[in-house]
Amino acid sequence: MKRWIGISWVSTVFAFLYGPLLVLMVFSFNQARYTSEWQGFSLTWYASLLENQYLLDAFVNSLTVAFVSSLAATAMGTLGAFAIAWYRFAGKKLFFGLVYSVMMSPDIVMGISLLMLFVTAGIHPGFFTLLVAHITFCLPFVIVLVHARIAGFDPAVVDAARDLGAREHEVFLKIVFPMILPAVLAGWLLSFTLSLDDVIISFFVTGPGFEILPLKIYSMVKLGVTPEVNALCTILFVLTLAAVLVAHFLIKEKKK
């Protein structure tokens, strides 16, 4: 009896979480354009996506921003994590606290404040502002992930490597880098997905000249949900899911 309650509880939760996604995915393969009735399997909408130059452009833009911003956030975040873990400086606790607060702050607040910053600085919204904004909100995640990893290993291993004859660059290449690599990769993938599907912050900081996919979808949906949107969302979901899974395994590997 108890078991049945458990099972039905879990399935309700899962249905609640994944039901809408499933519906969306199924309907992306539906032949009908307007009805929400199943009219047979078809890949039409995927094909028509490929012909929609606007969407493709936005997709490429999105990938570019996600790729560049996640790389930059990963590089900067990794260095920041080292600074927090290995060096003593005034205001270190405060700095770390601020990192968390950026992570927690509502997207809308961040979007508006970044917009104000760019306006005040007289920077035109576009690729550059988008990039900066995405780096900003990805950075804390990388710092936290990589910092946890660095803090988790015994700093004496660096001494041990030097003691055994390793020069500074060898210590980094053979000891430090391999040890933090899983966290760095996880941070990078996480940043990539965060950047790829961000709507709210991007909405404030991008300009008309530079469209990205989530915003494009958002504007398409204003005119009604088309099967094309379903197809697009399915692709995005699969991409994100893959990245999250890989990141998950990388983080898990570290705990072993």
Binding site: A156, V157, D159, A160, M179
Partner: peptide, 13 residues
């Protein structure tokens, strides 16, 4: 000179 560290400091990876 080589050292055996208090925490062993083995390379975990």
């Amino acid at each position: 000179v080589n050292t055996v560290f208090q925490s062993y400091a083995l390379f975990p990876h």
